[in-house]
Amino acid sequence: MSTVIQETYQPLTEETAILLAKERNLFSENSTLSCTEIGDGNLNLVFHIKDQDGKGIIIKQALPYAKVVGESWPLTLKRATIEAEALKLFKKHAPDFVPDVYYTNEVLAITIMEDLSHLTISRKGLIDGNEYPLLASHLGTYLANTTFFTSEFGVDKGQKKELVGKFINPELCKITEDLIFSDPYFDAETNDFEPQLTSTVEKLWKDTELKLQVALLRKSFLTEAEALLHGDLHTGSLFVSKEETKVIDPEFAYFGPVGFDIGQVIANLLFQAIAFEEKSDSIYSQVRTFWNVYQNQFSILWEHDNLEPFARIDGFLSSTLQKYFQDAVGFAGCELIRRTIGLAHVADLDGLPDEKERIAAKEKSLALGRELILKRNEFTSIEELVTFLQTKKYE
């Protein structure tokens, strides 16, 4: 049998992916294996390998370029190592919500991990009308644990500095900096929107008040290494069922402001409320549950596991959570805008079959995104945010 492990990078094929699984002894010796490449993202190959009994594994391999553009947009393969290390660290702190990692190889830029094919990508499931009653509470618990135990509150300050260095991720952070915090606010080539939105988008480009606040949020993203973030925590990065939630794809992981991941979750739930108004009350309830579980779990960890000498000072916890929350509201607004007119859209909006409804939903997304960015520091509680959403003052 020819070996797959080698000294130079080569993209796997379905055939060599099977050879690799056999080399790693991940199946019994006499297994009959089948393999399908299932990646539908822009940055990676993803192979699903199964034996005759249905036992499976996933092999994810980073590509040295972005598929959405091609080889003219080169990307570092180091992101595969960052993703694997992030999965391991998140697994340590939130074991119920992260898949097992079986093997990594830095040369091939691969991670072999638990097969989650019995679950559904949450964005697809939500668009199809399914309900996941535990999703919000699972995400609140996951993020509370991972952000607390990678912050200075939950890890030795020297160890945290070492982790910050380990997760320096400049190329993928640059993608976020450009596609979320810069390009949508200028007439950039990467932007992508329907002609019917041109008037609204041009007003946005001239909105200096909005652009100032986006600049401040961008500065926070660039400079505040509060905790290890997933960095791309949208509903397409979650495998779910009614009982389970698994967080995948942390290749954008880096140390940044805690509110960024929280805001990504909120925004990607809100796309459902915008696209399917009949579901809005249910979605707002999930947003409320998500934040309440987050702050309750974070508060418990603060009380029992805090390494910070000032932890017992009145007001420190509440001011920390308030900052996270208000940052999250602003970052959610940025996500709503960029997914509507930037390079990477969401199927929640793009999949609406009726053109008039689709354009109306995108107008709402832009209006809501703007309001969340501008008003983020006015919200002092989740109830105030939910009330604002329910009254649709942004229309």
Rank of each mutant, 00 (worst) to 15 (best):
G54R: 13
T8S: 13
F27W: 11
N292P: 04
G333C: 09
K92W: 08
S365F: 06
R79K: 12
L119R: 05
F276L: 05
S299R: 14
K364S: 12
K203P: 03
Y9T: 01
F316H: 10
D314L: 12
L372P: 02
L204Q: 04
S199A: 14
G369Y: 01
G154S: 09
Q322G: 09
Q390V: 04
I313E: 13
Y102T: 08
K203Y: 08
M1L: 13
S299M: 09
T176A: 03
S220R: 15
L352C: 08
R123A: 05
P133G: 08
L269I: 01
V164L: 08
G70D: 03
Q6N: 12
P195I: 15
L63P: 00
L19V: 11
A344W: 00
Y142C: 13
H304K: 15
D178H: 10
D350Q: 13
S31W: 08
T16S: 15
P184R: 01
G129N: 12
K279A: 10
A144I: 10
I127F: 07
Q52N: 13
L269D: 00
F388E: 02
I337Y: 01
D350Y: 02
K91M: 09
F148E: 02
K364L: 13
L139I: 06
E278K: 14
K157H: 10
Y102Q: 08
G263H: 01
P11G: 08
E85W: 07
V98D: 05
V4M: 11
G56T: 11
N306I: 11
T208P: 02
T141Y: 05
S381E: 09
A188M: 09
Y65V: 04
L108S: 08
A62I: 04
D128P: 04
A347V: 10
E85Y: 07
L43W: 00
M1I: 14
K362Q: 15
G70Q: 01
Q322Y: 07
K60Q: 05
Q297S: 08
T190K: 05
N25K: 15
G54I: 13
G54Y: 12
C173I: 00
Q295S: 14
F331T: 06
Q264A: 13
K211C: 06
L172T: 00
K279H: 11
R312F: 10
D232L: 02
L26A: 08
Y102N: 09
L143G: 03
V247A: 04
K67A: 04
G125L: 07
I112W: 00
Q6S: 15
Y103S: 03
F298H: 04
L116Q: 05
Q61S: 03
I248G: 02
Q10M: 12
K161P: 02
A367W: 05
G56P: 05
T16I: 09
A367R: 15
A361I: 12
I382Y: 01
K392F: 03
S72D: 11
H138E: 02
V155N: 01
L12P: 05
Q52D: 13
G369A: 03
E15S: 13
L89N: 07
K67L: 11
A253M: 09
Q295I: 11
D305Y: 15
L210F: 10
K211R: 15
A360K: 15
P64K: 01
Y102S: 06
G351M: 10
A215W: 08
K174G: 00
D40M: 06
